[in-house]
Design a protein around this nucleic acid. Structure first.
Lengths: 134, 134
DNA sequence: CCTTGACCTTACAGTTAGTGGAAGGTTTAG
DNA sequence: CTAAACCTTCCACTAACTGTAAGGTCAAGG
Protein backbone atom coordinates (compact mmCIF):
# COMPACT_ATOMS: atom_id res chain seq x y z
CA UNK A 1 0.00 0.00 0.00
CA UNK A 2 1.32 3.46 -0.97
CA UNK A 3 1.36 6.42 1.34
CA UNK A 4 -1.82 8.08 0.11
CA UNK A 5 -3.74 4.85 0.67
CA UNK A 6 -2.31 4.63 4.17
CA UNK A 7 -3.26 8.24 4.71
CA UNK A 8 -6.86 7.65 3.65
CA UNK A 9 -7.14 4.56 5.82
CA UNK A 10 -5.58 6.08 8.91
CA UNK A 11 -7.04 9.55 8.92
CA UNK A 12 -3.60 11.17 8.81
CA UNK A 13 -2.28 13.13 5.85
CA UNK A 14 0.58 11.76 3.76
CA UNK A 15 2.63 14.73 4.91
CA UNK A 16 1.95 13.87 8.51
CA UNK A 17 2.96 10.25 8.03
CA UNK A 18 6.29 11.30 6.51
CA UNK A 19 6.72 13.73 9.37
CA UNK A 20 6.11 11.01 11.95
CA UNK A 21 8.76 8.90 10.26
CA UNK A 22 11.11 11.88 10.25
CA UNK A 23 10.88 12.41 13.98
CA UNK A 24 11.16 8.66 14.54
CA UNK A 25 7.73 8.26 16.01
CA UNK A 26 7.27 5.31 13.67
CA UNK A 27 9.86 3.06 12.07
CA UNK A 28 11.06 3.97 8.57
CA UNK A 29 8.60 2.49 6.09
CA UNK A 30 9.69 -0.28 3.76
CA UNK A 31 10.34 0.91 0.22
CA UNK A 32 9.37 -0.65 -3.07
CA UNK A 33 11.76 -0.73 -6.05
CA UNK A 34 10.84 2.75 -7.19
CA UNK A 35 11.54 4.18 -3.75
CA UNK A 36 7.91 4.59 -2.72
CA UNK A 37 7.01 3.94 0.91
CA UNK A 38 5.04 0.75 1.50
CA UNK A 39 2.59 0.15 4.36
CA UNK A 40 1.17 -3.14 5.57
CA UNK A 41 -1.64 -3.93 8.02
CA UNK A 42 0.67 -3.69 11.00
CA UNK A 43 2.05 -0.26 10.21
CA UNK A 44 -1.42 0.92 9.33
CA UNK A 45 -2.58 -0.12 12.80
CA UNK A 46 0.06 2.08 14.37
CA UNK A 47 -0.90 5.01 12.18
CA UNK A 48 -4.53 4.64 13.19
CA UNK A 49 -3.52 4.37 16.83
CA UNK A 50 -1.57 7.62 16.57
CA UNK A 51 -4.38 9.41 14.76
CA UNK A 52 -6.77 8.37 17.48
CA UNK A 53 -4.43 9.32 20.33
CA UNK A 54 -3.97 12.79 18.83
CA UNK A 55 -7.73 13.00 18.38
CA UNK A 56 -8.44 12.56 22.06
CA UNK A 57 -5.92 15.22 22.98
CA UNK A 58 -2.54 13.58 23.51
CA UNK A 59 0.43 15.52 22.16
CA UNK A 60 3.11 13.74 20.15
CA UNK A 61 5.33 13.00 23.12
CA UNK A 62 2.45 11.45 25.01
CA UNK A 63 1.34 9.56 21.92
CA UNK A 64 4.85 8.20 21.63
CA UNK A 65 4.65 6.88 25.19
CA UNK A 66 1.29 5.30 24.51
CA UNK A 67 2.60 3.67 21.36
CA UNK A 68 5.62 2.36 23.27
CA UNK A 69 3.23 0.83 25.75
CA UNK A 70 1.20 -0.74 22.99
CA UNK A 71 4.36 -2.28 21.54
CA UNK A 72 5.55 -3.58 24.90
CA UNK A 73 4.16 -7.01 25.62
CA UNK A 74 5.24 -6.87 29.24
CA UNK A 75 3.47 -3.56 29.81
CA UNK A 76 1.35 -2.81 32.86
CA UNK A 77 -2.06 -1.39 32.08
CA UNK A 78 -1.61 0.88 35.08
CA UNK A 79 0.83 2.97 33.05
CA UNK A 80 -1.68 3.58 30.30
CA UNK A 81 -4.30 4.47 32.85
CA UNK A 82 -1.96 6.95 34.52
CA UNK A 83 -1.29 8.68 31.22
CA UNK A 84 -4.99 8.95 30.51
CA UNK A 85 -5.90 10.30 33.94
CA UNK A 86 -3.08 12.81 33.83
CA UNK A 87 -4.25 14.01 30.42
CA UNK A 88 -7.79 14.26 31.64
CA UNK A 89 -6.58 16.48 34.49
CA UNK A 90 -4.71 18.73 32.08
CA UNK A 91 -7.77 19.01 29.89
CA UNK A 92 -9.84 19.88 32.94
CA UNK A 93 -7.49 22.71 33.82
CA UNK A 94 -7.49 24.04 30.28
CA UNK A 95 -11.28 23.85 30.06
CA UNK A 96 -11.62 25.86 33.25
CA UNK A 97 -9.25 28.49 31.90
CA UNK A 98 -11.25 28.82 28.71
CA UNK A 99 -14.52 28.99 30.60
CA UNK A 100 -13.15 31.74 32.79
CA UNK A 101 -12.04 33.71 29.71
CA UNK A 102 -15.42 33.24 28.14
CA UNK A 103 -17.21 34.46 31.24
CA UNK A 104 -15.11 37.61 31.17
CA UNK A 105 -15.90 38.16 27.51
CA UNK A 106 -19.61 37.79 28.07
CA UNK A 107 -19.57 40.21 30.99
CA UNK A 108 -17.75 42.76 28.85
CA UNK A 109 -20.10 42.30 25.91
CA UNK A 110 -23.12 42.71 28.12
CA UNK A 111 -21.82 46.06 29.30
CA UNK A 112 -21.21 47.38 25.77
CA UNK A 113 -24.03 49.06 23.91
CA UNK A 114 -22.65 47.88 20.58
CA UNK A 115 -23.95 50.82 18.59
CA UNK A 116 -22.51 53.38 16.15
CA UNK A 117 -20.93 55.48 18.89
CA UNK A 118 -17.36 55.27 20.18
CA UNK A 119 -18.17 54.70 23.85
CA UNK A 120 -17.35 51.10 24.60
CA UNK A 121 -17.27 49.28 27.89
CA UNK A 122 -15.19 46.51 26.33
CA UNK A 123 -12.35 48.83 25.42
CA UNK A 124 -12.58 50.41 28.87
CA UNK A 125 -12.53 47.04 30.61
CA UNK A 126 -9.52 45.91 28.62
CA UNK A 127 -7.73 49.16 29.46
CA UNK A 128 -8.54 49.20 33.12
CA UNK A 129 -8.52 45.54 34.04
CA UNK A 130 -5.90 44.40 36.49
CA UNK A 131 -3.47 41.90 35.00
CA UNK A 132 -5.29 38.60 35.31
CA UNK A 133 -3.67 35.74 37.16
CA UNK A 134 -5.95 33.17 35.53
CA UNK B 1 10.67 54.46 32.26
CA UNK B 2 12.94 51.62 31.07
CA UNK B 3 11.68 48.40 29.57
CA UNK B 4 11.88 46.27 32.71
CA UNK B 5 9.79 48.82 34.59
CA UNK B 6 7.26 48.81 31.76
CA UNK B 7 7.30 45.03 31.88
CA UNK B 8 6.59 44.93 35.60
CA UNK B 9 3.79 47.47 35.29
CA UNK B 10 2.12 45.87 32.29
CA UNK B 11 2.37 42.21 33.10
CA UNK B 12 4.29 41.47 29.91
CA UNK B 13 7.93 40.38 29.84
CA UNK B 14 10.60 42.71 28.44
CA UNK B 15 11.19 40.15 25.72
CA UNK B 16 7.55 40.23 24.78
CA UNK B 17 7.46 44.02 24.61
CA UNK B 18 10.42 44.04 22.23
CA UNK B 19 8.70 41.34 20.21
CA UNK B 20 5.51 43.39 19.97
CA UNK B 21 7.56 46.29 18.69
CA UNK B 22 9.27 44.00 16.22
CA UNK B 23 6.03 42.82 14.65
CA UNK B 24 4.74 46.40 14.66
CA UNK B 25 1.93 45.74 17.06
CA UNK B 26 3.06 48.83 18.95
CA UNK B 27 4.99 51.85 17.69
CA UNK B 28 8.77 51.83 18.12
CA UNK B 29 9.54 53.08 21.60
CA UNK B 30 11.33 56.39 22.09
CA UNK B 31 14.99 55.99 22.96
CA UNK B 32 17.07 57.79 25.53
CA UNK B 33 20.64 58.91 24.80
CA UNK B 34 22.14 55.56 25.63
CA UNK B 35 19.77 53.80 23.24
CA UNK B 36 17.51 52.36 25.92
CA UNK B 37 13.78 52.19 25.16
CA UNK B 38 11.63 54.68 27.06
CA UNK B 39 7.98 54.20 27.98
CA UNK B 40 5.51 56.83 29.15
CA UNK B 41 2.02 56.53 30.62
CA UNK B 42 0.42 56.35 27.18
CA UNK B 43 2.54 53.50 25.87
CA UNK B 44 2.17 51.71 29.16
CA UNK B 45 -1.61 51.86 28.74
CA UNK B 46 -1.33 50.13 25.39
CA UNK B 47 0.91 47.46 26.83
CA UNK B 48 -1.55 46.80 29.62
CA UNK B 49 -4.38 46.70 27.11
CA UNK B 50 -2.54 44.08 25.08
CA UNK B 51 -1.69 42.01 28.12
CA UNK B 52 -5.32 42.01 29.13
CA UNK B 53 -6.61 41.20 25.63
CA UNK B 54 -4.26 38.21 25.42
CA UNK B 55 -5.38 37.19 28.90
CA UNK B 56 -9.01 36.86 27.92
CA UNK B 57 -8.13 34.77 24.92
CA UNK B 58 -7.58 37.05 21.93
CA UNK B 59 -4.69 36.11 19.69
CA UNK B 60 -2.24 38.74 18.48
CA UNK B 61 -4.11 39.51 15.27
CA UNK B 62 -7.36 40.03 17.16
CA UNK B 63 -5.56 42.06 19.81
CA UNK B 64 -4.19 44.24 17.05
CA UNK B 65 -7.71 44.90 15.79
CA UNK B 66 -8.90 45.72 19.28
CA UNK B 67 -5.99 48.08 19.77
CA UNK B 68 -6.73 49.74 16.44
CA UNK B 69 -10.27 50.28 17.61
CA UNK B 70 -9.07 51.74 20.87
CA UNK B 71 -6.86 54.17 18.98
CA UNK B 72 -9.64 55.18 16.57
CA UNK B 73 -11.66 58.04 17.98
CA UNK B 74 -14.35 57.59 15.35
CA UNK B 75 -14.80 53.92 16.18
CA UNK B 76 -18.18 52.25 16.56
CA UNK B 77 -18.57 50.19 19.71
CA UNK B 78 -20.45 47.66 17.62
CA UNK B 79 -17.15 46.54 16.11
CA UNK B 80 -15.62 45.79 19.48
CA UNK B 81 -18.73 43.92 20.47
CA UNK B 82 -18.62 41.84 17.30
CA UNK B 83 -15.03 40.85 17.98
CA UNK B 84 -15.87 39.82 21.51
CA UNK B 85 -18.92 37.79 20.55
CA UNK B 86 -17.03 36.06 17.76
CA UNK B 87 -14.23 35.16 20.16
CA UNK B 88 -16.73 33.88 22.68
CA UNK B 89 -18.19 31.62 19.99
CA UNK B 90 -14.74 30.28 19.11
CA UNK B 91 -14.01 29.61 22.76
CA UNK B 92 -17.34 27.82 23.05
CA UNK B 93 -16.44 25.54 20.16
CA UNK B 94 -13.03 24.80 21.58
CA UNK B 95 -14.44 24.11 25.03
CA UNK B 96 -16.89 21.63 23.58
CA UNK B 97 -14.09 19.88 21.71
CA UNK B 98 -12.03 19.55 24.87
CA UNK B 99 -15.03 18.32 26.85
CA UNK B 100 -15.70 15.69 24.23
CA UNK B 101 -12.08 14.53 24.36
CA UNK B 102 -12.21 14.40 28.11
CA UNK B 103 -15.37 12.34 28.08
CA UNK B 104 -13.69 9.83 25.79
CA UNK B 105 -10.67 9.66 28.06
CA UNK B 106 -12.79 9.01 31.11
CA UNK B 107 -14.77 6.29 29.37
CA UNK B 108 -11.53 4.59 28.37
CA UNK B 109 -10.03 4.90 31.84
CA UNK B 110 -13.14 3.45 33.42
CA UNK B 111 -12.83 0.39 31.20
CA UNK B 112 -9.16 -0.20 32.07
CA UNK B 113 -8.31 -2.23 35.13
CA UNK B 114 -5.08 -0.32 35.60
CA UNK B 115 -3.18 -3.14 37.21
CA UNK B 116 0.16 -4.91 36.67
CA UNK B 117 -1.10 -6.93 33.70
CA UNK B 118 -0.79 -6.04 30.01
CA UNK B 119 -4.49 -6.21 29.14
CA UNK B 120 -5.66 -2.67 28.65
CA UNK B 121 -8.96 -1.36 27.34
CA UNK B 122 -7.37 2.03 26.67
CA UNK B 123 -4.84 0.61 24.25
CA UNK B 124 -7.59 -1.43 22.62
CA UNK B 125 -9.89 1.55 22.32
CA UNK B 126 -7.16 3.66 20.75
CA UNK B 127 -6.38 0.87 18.30
CA UNK B 128 -9.93 0.12 17.32
CA UNK B 129 -11.55 3.51 17.49
CA UNK B 130 -12.92 4.91 14.27
CA UNK B 131 -11.18 8.09 13.19
CA UNK B 132 -12.98 10.75 15.15
CA UNK B 133 -14.64 13.63 13.34
CA UNK B 134 -14.78 15.73 16.49
C1' DC C 1 6.05 7.24 -28.91
C1' DC C 2 4.33 11.01 -26.39
C1' DT C 3 1.73 13.36 -23.29
C1' DT C 4 -1.27 14.11 -19.33
C1' DG C 5 -2.50 13.49 -14.68
C1' DA C 6 -1.92 11.41 -10.50
C1' DC C 7 1.07 9.60 -7.89
C1' DC C 8 5.72 9.66 -5.35
C1' DT C 9 10.43 11.69 -3.57
C1' DT C 10 13.38 15.29 -0.95
C1' DA C 11 14.25 19.68 1.00
C1' DC C 12 13.35 24.17 2.60
C1' DA C 13 10.26 27.91 4.35
C1' DG C 14 6.43 29.44 7.07
C1' DT C 15 3.02 29.26 10.81
C1' DT C 16 2.07 31.23 16.55
C1' DA C 17 3.69 33.66 20.28
C1' DG C 18 6.96 33.99 22.22
C1' DT C 19 11.55 32.12 25.15
C1' DG C 20 16.56 31.26 25.74
C1' DG C 21 21.05 32.44 25.08
C1' DA C 22 25.19 34.69 23.21
C1' DA C 23 28.00 38.71 22.82
C1' DG C 24 28.52 43.05 24.09
C1' DG C 25 27.45 48.14 25.83
C1' DT C 26 25.88 51.13 30.17
C1' DT C 27 25.02 52.45 34.78
C1' DT C 28 25.28 52.33 39.68
C1' DA C 29 27.14 50.91 44.12
C1' DG C 30 30.83 49.60 46.90
C1' DC D 1 38.20 48.77 39.71
C1' DT D 2 34.92 45.58 39.58
C1' DA D 3 30.51 43.27 40.09
C1' DA D 4 25.63 43.36 39.58
C1' DA D 5 21.95 44.68 37.11
C1' DC D 6 20.47 46.83 33.55
C1' DC D 7 20.18 47.44 28.32
C1' DT D 8 21.08 46.32 23.11
C1' DT D 9 20.84 43.12 18.75
C1' DC D 10 20.65 38.78 16.62
C1' DC D 11 20.03 33.94 16.04
C1' DA D 12 18.06 29.56 17.34
C1' DC D 13 14.37 26.88 19.29
C1' DT D 14 9.64 25.31 20.56
C1' DA D 15 4.78 22.07 18.42
C1' DA D 16 2.90 19.93 14.85
C1' DC D 17 2.44 20.28 11.09
C1' DT D 18 1.34 22.66 6.01
C1' DG D 19 2.82 24.77 1.63
C1' DT D 20 5.69 24.96 -2.14
C1' DA D 21 9.35 23.82 -5.34
C1' DA D 22 11.81 20.76 -8.24
C1' DG D 23 11.93 16.56 -9.92
C1' DG D 24 11.16 11.13 -10.57
C1' DT D 25 7.44 7.27 -11.70
C1' DC D 26 3.47 5.06 -13.47
C1' DA D 27 -0.83 3.98 -16.07
C1' DA D 28 -4.05 5.35 -19.65
C1' DG D 29 -5.22 7.42 -24.06
C1' DG D 30 -4.19 9.22 -28.76
Amino acid sequence: MNISQAARQSGLSAKTIRYYEDIELIAPAARSDNGYRQYDAKSLEELRFLARARDVGFDLEESRQLLDLRRDNSRQSRHARDLVMEKSQKLQTRIEQLLSMQRELLVMASRCKGDEGPDCAILEDLSAGQAGES
